[in-house]
Design a protein around this nucleic acid. Sequence first.
DNA 1: CATCCCCAAAGATCAGATTTAATGCCACAA
DNA 2: TTGTGGCATTAAATCTGATCTTTGGGGATG
Lengths: 231, 231
Amino acid sequence: MDDPGGLHSTVLEALGLRIVSGDLTPGQVLTLDSVDTEYAVSRSVSREAVRVLQSMGLVTSRRRVGVTVCPRDNWHVFDPRVIRWRLAGDDRTNQLLSLSELRSGFEPVAAALAAERATPQQCSALSGAVMDMVAHRHSGDLEAYLVADTIFHRTMLEASGNEMLRALGDVVAEVLAGRTHHHLMPATPRADAVALHERVANAIRTGDADDARTAMQAIIDEAAAALADPS
Amino acid sequence: MDDPGGLHSTVLEALGLRIVSGDLTPGQVLTLDSVDTEYAVSRSVSREAVRVLQSMGLVTSRRRVGVTVCPRDNWHVFDPRVIRWRLAGDDRTNQLLSLSELRSGFEPVAAALAAERATPQQCSALSGAVMDMVAHRHSGDLEAYLVADTIFHRTMLEASGNEMLRALGDVVAEVLAGRTHHHLMPATPRADAVALHERVANAIRTGDADDARTAMQAIIDEAAAALADPS
DNA sequence: CATCCCCAAAGATCAGATTTAATGCCACAA
DNA sequence: TTGTGGCATTAAATCTGATCTTTGGGGATG
């Protein structure tokens, strides 16, 4: 395993994954001591890991009681790490469907805003991303396709001019990455998916907000459909 | 100040506020030692505070360098604490406008979904919340009005049946709370605002997804307009 | 049966030892 | 002379073990 960032990061990842995957069920209590011995680390290492977990709403920590695992309602589900852990777990498909509904909430709006606010640089960046998607679709390099796809959505959200929408780029990135890394993508991406991306890019360049919105909505619908039927 | 949750929480709040308010500018570096002495706390207290700050994307911590304040792009702007700190700062209005655009992304969608999925209990909860809003609008009790308003939006998002949308209830709650606590609300809430809420509740009960969507969009537009002109 | 007090369990805090890596210095070569 | 590469220095985060403080529960007492 890698532990870039130190020991506490390792413990954090391990515990977070166990909680999110359901290995540690809500209501269950751990003690710091047990964490110490379990992972063979010192007090403050486990303390910091638990502290971050607490800041993500995954656990609560009370004296004399211990570290209690929180129910899902308390989880900060927009934290990229929580999303990644959930996509690594069992309810991967449910999570992706849930995220698709969320995306259909904001990405069409962002596309419409981008059509009104995108700079020429951003437009060309979008076009470039689409070109890369086309190229890597043919070459069958899913990893490179993922990179281009991610750049496309990040740039689009960035072009919306709204910082909150831009911040959701992390969420979309995790979704796209999880989808390919867990083999929920077709071996070669759908041709119509790429075409829709191109249509969004064109609509944004020409300032056609309505078409940008509907095409983006179609992208998400297509993704959700492909999820149910990965042909 | 209160420090429910221990010393580290105090330091966390103080540092977070200073970073978000711009008192500590991006690129600026602190050392843990300086934090220790500044707030007269011990090593692990400042360490845990900084660790949480890091998990929120507000700072990075590197050896031999210190704790570096991150630019805005890295902030986890969906963390309720970050929102609260920003609403407490100077760019309050910008932040609220940005959040309004975000809300117009997902709340209409959530309303439409709620119209298809809301349970009878949720419908009556919505109606009850609207009744409370009406009552407290007349009594002029802004705090009670806020509570009812918050319950309304939380219930609506809950009724959407999508956990990610429900999680955004925290964001909306912070927005509503910040708006009244920083006196950006009219002395007595707009009558048409309440009427729109009632229309949303009715649309959800009758399963009229389209009307729920448009009425919810109108609520957000009205709120954004009232922000620009707090009459 | 209710109340109060005492104790141990568990997290919270502290001060000190350890490890890492940025910086500046110096030797060497072009 | 000047540019480049490696090495020692040392500042800073990281980790460790011990101590302090709070708190939930059990038992004695009225």
